[in-house]
């Protein structure tokens, strides 16, 4: 398949994520949308990795592997971020009994 299909698919997913973050009011959903953004990036990285591998395999047999590695790093960091993020949401829920993002407006003076 041409690389353009992957780029369009990933960018679509990424934009869905961005729109979700900006419009949804439920913290968990916002959180899910951020995960969609990260996974769109993962998909695109793997596609690019394959593309560079096919193009350069004659001169460099390991071309493209660094992007595959990058994907694992993104997964690890996303997991770490989720653990901290969910802890923050639980802490907020204990104090306010709500997970609505609109609570964030209280800080504005």
């Amino acid at each position: 398949m041409p690389i353009n299909y992957y780029i369009i698919l990933s960018l679509t997913l990424f934009v869905i994520g961005i729109v979700g973050v900006l419009t949804r009011r439920n913290t968990i959903i916002v959180f899910m949308c951020i995960e969609i953004m990260l996974n769109a990036v993962n998909l695109l990285l793997v596609a690019f990795s394959k593309m560079h591998h096919i193009n350069q395999v004659a001169t460099n047999p390991t071309a493209g592997t660094e992007a595959q590695l990058f994907v694992f790093f993104i997964m690890v960091v996303a997991a770490a971020e989720v653990s901290v993020g969910l802890a923050i949401i639980v802490m907020l829920f204990r104090n306010t009994h709500s997970i609505d993002v609109n609570f964030l407006n209280r800080l504005k003076h």
């Binding site: 994520g17 990036v41 802490m91 609570f103 964030l104």
Partner: peptide
């Protein structure tokens, strides 16, 4: 709490953009 959540959402969002 609110500052933390706000920072977290903004930080994770900008990380996504950076990765793209």
């Amino acid at each position: 709490n609110e500052a933390s959540l706000k920072y977290f959402l903004m930080g994770a969002f900008s990380t996504g953009i950076m990765l793209m």
